[in-house]
Amino acid sequence: MISEESKARFATEVAKYPADQKQSAVMACLAIVQQELGYVSAESEKLVADYLGMAPIAVHEVTSFYNMYNQQPVGKYKLNVCTNLPCQLRDGGRALKHLEEKLDIGMGETTADGLFTLQQCECLGACADSPVLLVNDRHMCSFMSDDKLDQLVDGLRAQGNK
């Protein structure tokens, strides 16, 4: 279940909106759930729905509409590589391919040890930094040459195996 700390963060988000518009905090609350639990389960949706006074299906509509919510468990580190046109012109596709080889998985898959999930994604809004990727939704990594990708994966792997 969700921690007290996360619930306190829910309250901070709800406070941003008029008292009769708690639903506005749903996206933030779901992101907080995902940060703590790794993905948004039906059970978590129910919890958020109860907290905000929404119907669970209304919460599920949000989870399923926005790209970044994980509706299934993912690896400990989710890597999203941008391959949209500006990145495609500057090695975005090559970065994705390099990670596929390095991690020995295909796009959309998770490594057997559960450490990495690799996905392609749409525009991150950092086109001049290409190749770019996101780690666990919240950390953007810029100018990811093959060397840097190796360094990142090795660093995360060492961290994840601790």
């Binding site: 941003k16 518009q21 639903q23 506005s24 905090a25 749903v26 996206m27 933030a28 779901l30 992101a31 905000l52 929404m54 209304a58 949000v62 509409f65 926005y66 790209n67 970044m68 919510y69 994604c121 749409e122 525009c123 939704d137």
Partner: peptide, 21 residues
């Protein structure tokens, strides 16, 4: 307010819907 991955929310009325949860 933060989005969570939807290009269409840059359209002003989609953005409003999104802020409404």
């Amino acid at each position: 307010f933060h989005g969570f991955g939807a290009y269409v929310c840059g359209e002003e009325t989609a953005l409003l819907e999104s802020v409404e949860g």
